[in-house]
Deep mutational scan, measured.
Amino acid sequence: GSVVKEKKEKALIEVRPYVEYYNELKALVSKISSSVNDLEEAIVVLREEEKKASEPFKTDIRILLDFLES
Rank of each mutant, 00 (worst) to 15 (best):
G1H: 08
G1E: 10
G1L: 02
V3Y: 02
V3F: 03
V3Q: 09
V4S: 09
V4M: 13
V4T: 08
K5C: 15
K5R: 11
E6F: 08
E6S: 11
E6M: 03
E6K: 06
K7T: 12
K7I: 15
K8R: 10
K8D: 06
K8L: 15
K10W: 14
K10F: 11
K10G: 04
A11M: 06
L12A: 01
L12R: 01
E14A: 15
E14G: 06
E14L: 09
E14N: 08
E14F: 12
R16Q: 12
R16P: 14
P17N: 08
Y18S: 08
Y18D: 10
V19N: 01
V19A: 02
Y21A: 08
Y21W: 06
Y22T: 03
Y22R: 01
N23I: 13
N23M: 13
N23V: 12
N23H: 10
N23L: 14
N23T: 09
E24C: 08
L25P: 00
L25H: 00
K26Q: 07
A27S: 07
A27R: 04
A27C: 04
V29S: 02
S30E: 14
S30Q: 11
K31S: 08
I32V: 09
I32R: 03
S33I: 11
S33W: 15
N37C: 06
D38A: 07
D38S: 12
D38W: 14
L39K: 02
E40Q: 09
E40R: 09
E40I: 07
A42D: 04
I43D: 01
V44T: 10
V44S: 11
V45F: 15
V45W: 15
V45P: 03
L46F: 05
L46P: 00
L46C: 02
R47H: 10
R47V: 05
R47S: 06
E49K: 04
E50R: 12
E50T: 05
E50L: 09
K51L: 09
K51F: 11
K51W: 11
K52W: 08
A53H: 11
A53Y: 08
A53I: 03
A53M: 04
A53E: 07
A53V: 05
S54N: 06
S54A: 10
E55C: 12
E55S: 05
E55K: 08
P56K: 04
F57R: 01
F57N: 01
F57D: 00
F57V: 01
K58G: 03
T59K: 14
T59S: 12
I61P: 00
I61N: 00
R62H: 12
R62A: 08
R62V: 03
I63Q: 03
I63K: 04
I63S: 02
L64D: 00
L65E: 00
D66F: 15
D66M: 15
F67P: 00
F67L: 05
F67I: 05
F67Y: 12
F67S: 04
L68N: 00
E69C: 10
E69P: 03
S70F: 13
S70A: 10
